[in-house]
Amino acid sequence: MANTLIVENADKFRGKAQVLKDINLTIAPGERLALLGHNGAGKSTLIKSILGLTPIRGGKISICGAAPGSAAARAATAFLPEAVSFHPALTGREQLNQFARLSGVRADVPALLERVGLSDALDRRIGTYSKGMRQRLGLAQVLLGNPKLALLDEPTSGLDPISRQDLYAIIDELAAKGTAVLIASHALTEVEARTDRIAIMRKGVKVADDTLAALSADAALQTSIRITARDGEADRIAAQIGGTRINGASVEIHCDAAAKMEALRHVAALGDAVADVSMTPPRLEDLYRHYAKEDHA
């Protein structure tokens, strides 16, 4: 199937500073892409370019074959701005009705608000909503009229952990229906399990774009294995298999993903001396640090 979103060689300048440098990005229908980067890395600028809110200097962007900001692209795209708010005098129902009328879709507004957990606040003024509730209201308008592409800018900001779970459940539903989802985020650990692919931006350059497993292998990040020894055996273990003593009873060894099983076999050979083993695969944080801080571009 053709990609829903195609960004080719996009360049953008603000004054003399180049804020997007030769960005290439695609998202297939039903794919969930996490776009990671520090503040000022160009995530929001890229999203605004895709929405047609700000023009790009060079390159090309297409949404289902349409140009950014065109009627077809607007109809196909849903957007959740970062920390969005709405007019405090309106109720949640009125605000969603307006969005539904603007996009020309017939929507069951009460059902949508129930889906995001706002059914109690349906007819309350948005001025009385908490930050998390406003964020949910923003999410409800994303669900209006089956978008082909959903762009979510920091969707978890202001949400408590349970709401975050709900949010990712909704994102999964969207993706299952064939929506291409782009999630710009700082919240690394959540994105890890919830997305199909990860793109990392740094100073306007895309420095990485692959699955978590492939990125980990490419960055040669090490898995750490911690061995808890029986009384007095820690020194012997450290001498036998290498690694560093952490405290009186533990030894930690680091190894490549490929060498992991061999290291485990060594540990198993130690027999009774080992009380416990725990293994930590490379985390997204490590990966992020690797690609975002090191001089990778």
Binding site: L53, A75, A83, V84, F86, G138
Partner: peptide, 17 residues
């Protein structure tokens, strides 16, 4: 300016209006 301050202007402009 009110819509822009609230951040809802960007959203409104992505709708087909």
């Amino acid at each position: 300016s009110g819509d822009r301050d609230r951040g809802s202007l960007a959203l409104l402009l992505t709708y087909p209006a």
